[in-house]
Design a protein around this nucleic acid. Structure first.
Length: 474
RNA sequence: GGUCCCAUCGUCUAGGGGCCUAGGACACCACCCUCUCAAGGUGGAGACACGGGUUCGAAUCCCGUUGGGACUACCA
């Protein structure tokens, strides 16, 4: 194991958004590429948004995606605890240290005062942010405020010099001293603010590389400043551009399915999602797109991550999923679709399902399609859909009736014999193969679309097939 | 408003001064294959936001404009 330590630090608010999933993936890939350590840390200091269920959702998604963590909840590690809600004492201690050496100070300004000054500053076109007035309070002034029963927060005294962050994907980013104001580390109720917690945790957990969304780019210099004030060594940062929706707005719920859980339920394979996500903002440099996990780990490089935002394209994800489904072994595909049949209220005969795989593998995009295509095999409650009904309706008078008996009389019930008979029937009725087979397909499967007909009938069995034809014959 | 980030086909991208009459993939169109639907095959249409520089030469470097986006909280 190398010294590289990456972390993924989600808020435990349920199933991961695909954007967050990509962040986790890139961080994981970087760790694995370097044979380093991947750490999962839960940012649950905002009690209002935290639920045990949300926490479970995050873990479940990561597991499903195959992003295993070496340290974190349920994995342990010697840099814990890994839930921020269990680290409150640590944050408090760090605040004391910063207060003690003057890196931070108590601020007695009230929210109202701050709001007013903010508005004024903006009116004058000055940079917003705290004006630092409590930074230079004398002991006497402090005592006076305290005696007025004014509450206070702890603010970080941002060192006044230019800040430069050498971001792994954005390059060198600079901020003038005036643009980085003193920010709150600890709320008046004593709880830590994100800016403090992240810095402290990254430092104490010996994180070497922070991979996160670029909405946090501006907090990097603050994170660095806090860590430096605490005497630690700041990690390297890699800020990933946003993942956008089709309308190029930041991806959100109103774009439909955006969570890992949603795609799982829609029948996407985790390998495909991971592969797709890996290519969202990163490319190996050549024309390859289907990248097995090991290959991905081997080739991944943060320096090759694009710095412009990428739109999430379900169509391409679906194409990729199709590729992965086709690569799946029959047993595997069958095993993975079982639960979706159950979800659809269909009991399946595993052996029959397994035998049907070669018929559907090349015609499904998601494993949910497997259910749609094979529903006729596991339910005798076949009600022809609208198009199927039309096909049956359009068939020549007596055609289906005439088909039932000879099929029933077949001595060998296999696809070859069935196909021969089907052609025979069509020819006798003066129909092309297409015209002749479609009504049969409609009767047997209840749909105008199905896996290859003779093979489907073979699997269904003579009795069930013939019964279905007779049921709609006239 | 201020600070910062971003800008190649509709989408994801390759490209880091001449190899670019800009390559690949998804989607789209046509044809082939074909029992439906797919899958597959072949071909096609489709982009360097704009304006200045730098240079013998710019998609590539610099500046500006425009357009997106993020941040600007006792949110994370």
């Amino acid at each position: 194991m190398s010294g590289v330590r990456c972390r993924f630090a989600p808020a435990p608010s349920g199933s991961l958004h695909v954007g967050n999933a990509r962040t986790a993936l890139f961080s994981w890939l970087w760790a694995r590429h370097h044979d380093g350590t991947f750490i999962l840390r839960v940012e649950d200091t905002d009690a209002s948004r935290v639920t045990e269920e949300g926490f479970r959702g995050v873990l479940e998604d990561l597991r499903w995606l195959g992003l295993d963590w070496d340290e974190g909840p349920e994995a342990g590690g010697d840099h814990g605890p890994y839930r921020q809600s269990e680290r409150l004492a640590i944050y408090r201690e760090m605040v004391e240290r910063l207060l003690a050496d003057g890196s931070a100070y108590r601020c007695y300004c009230t929210p109202e005062e701050l709001e007013q000054r903010r508005a004024e500053a903006q009116g004058r076109g000055e940079p917003p942010g705290y004006d630092g007035r409590c930074r230079t309070l004398t002991d006497a002034e402090r005592a006076a405020f305290a005696s007025q029963a004014r509450t206070s927060v702890v603010r970080f005294a941002m060192p006044e010099h230019e800040w430069i962050v050498h971001d792994l994907v954005k390059g060198e980013v600079r901020w003038a001293a005036a643009d980085l104001r003193d920010f709150v580390l600890q709320r008046s109720d004593g709880s830590p603010v994100f800016l403090l917690a992240v810095a402290v945790d990254d430092m104490l957990m010996d994180v070497t590389h922070v991979v996160r969304g670029d909405d946090l780019l501006a907090s990097a210099p603050r994170n660095i400043a806090v860590i430096e004030a605490l005497g630690g060594t700041p990690p390297a940062y890699a800020h990933l551009p946003q993942v956008l929706g089709p309308d190029r707005k930041p991806l959100s719920k109103r774009h439909g399915s955006t969570s890992v859980e949603a795609f799982r339920e829609l029948g996407y394979l985790s390998e495909a999602l991971v592969n797709y996500l890996a290519l969202l903002g990163w490319s190996p440099g050549d024309d390859r797109e289907i990248l097995p996990r090991e290959e991905m780990i081997w080739l991944f490089d943060l320096a090759r991550v694009s710095s412009n935002p990428a739109a999430f394209d379900v169509e391409k994800l679906t194409w990729m999923n199709t590729q992965y489904v086709q690569q799946l072994e029959d047993d595997e595909l069958a095993a993975r679709s079982v639960h979706l049949f159950a979800q659809a209220g269909l009991g399946v005969d595993p052996a029959l399902l397994r035998r049907a795989m070669p018929l559907v593998k090349e015609r499904v995009h998601t494993i949910r399609d497997v259910v749609d295509l094979l529903r006729f095999l596991f339910s005798d409650d076949v009600v022809p859909n609208e198009r199927a009904a039309a096909l049956i309706e359009k068939a020549p008078e007596g055609y289906l009736k005439a088909a039932a008996d000879p099929l029933d009389a077949l001595s060998t019930w296999d696809a070859g014999a069935i196909a021969t008979m089907l052609d025979d029937l069509a020819t006798r009725a003066g129909l092309s193969r297409t015209k002749g087979w479609q009504p049969i397909r409609a009767a047997v499967t209840g749909s105008n679309v199905s896996p290859p007909l003779p093979e489907s009938m073979e699997l269904l069995g003579k009795e069930r097939s013939v019964a279905r034809i007779r049921a709609v014959a006239r």
